[in-house]
Design a protein around this nucleic acid. Structure first.
Lengths: 138, 138
DNA sequence: CATTTCAATTGCAAAACGCAAGCAAATAAG
DNA sequence: CTTATTTGCTTGCGTTTTGCAATTGAAATG
């Protein structure tokens, strides 16, 4: 009884709980579109994420099923973060957000070719970006 | 000189600055999809936003050009918040986020007919939702 | 003119954040 | 074999943001 808080949740509400903070989408962007996979690489985003925040976000993202934490066999110090299909399926969301930002913020710059392809053949672009991310992590 | 911080910003980064927090998208959802327009209506969202947070978010949203604060002529106490085109153009983002949440969270419920239409004729649905929101605020 | 409604503001404790320093395990260098 | 370096974090601590409750002021209502 009384699991009313868990039922009939609004989709926006769930999404906000998963990536509705200042940093999770930045990390996802770097993993999905910039091809980063290691902790040290994620530390170098120009937005300047703090090391403790990055660590806590990666833990939460793993708990939320967005990434899988794995060790490199040939160097056991190194960790890499693999994207799940749940995370890769956020590519359309990232692209829609990008489309909006490019329109309404004059300072925003996205690769023009990317945005042009998104207008012309969005489905193919999404598939290509997801496939590229999948290949990178094998 | 030295406005390098403002130039060539990443689109994800800009979007996060505008609506990358726990509450702004909730407020936008209520204004855009639930037809709310008054402060007291926005207070009743089931997520339970605190009154000081709502006030600060509405101020920031006005500063960011998402809403316009207006007084009701027939009752000067009352305020209503009108959505700008910049805000209405986030309808596709909200729908993409909803599509994702419905797939990956078993507890999430969205109007099934809405999601079905989004699959079948996304452009028409977007236009209809934006038009409905525009009509409401006149 | 007293009460209620509306849209907030204020005060305060708790949580989250940002920065710098520190740390253990593994590898590389001497 | 010993020391240094790299990697992926954790810890401490001061600052900022949040959440909650109480309060306010202007305007409408009884």
């Amino acid at each position: 009884m009384s699991n009313s808080k868990l039922e009939n949740r609004c989709p926006i509400d769930y999404a906000l709980k998963v990536f509705g903070d200042r940093w999770t989408l930045i990390v996802l962007r770097d993993l999905m579109l910039s091809g980063k996979r290691h902790y040290r690489e994620l530390m170098t985003s120009k937005e300047g994420i703090a090391t403790n925040i990055l660590a806590s976000r990666l833990k939460k993202m793993e708990a939320d099923g967005l990434v899988i934490r794995k060790h490199k066999p040939e160097d056991k110090r190194q960790v890499f973060y693999e994207l799940t299909e749940k995370a890769l399926d956020l590519v359309p969301v990232l692209l829609e957000i990008s489309r909006w930002s490019v329109i309404y913020d004059q300072h925003t710059a996205a690769p023009p070719e990317l945005m042009r392809r998104y207008q012309v053949e969005p489905q193919q672009l999404i598939a290509d970006l997801q496939e590229a991310a999948r290949i990178r992590q094998t």
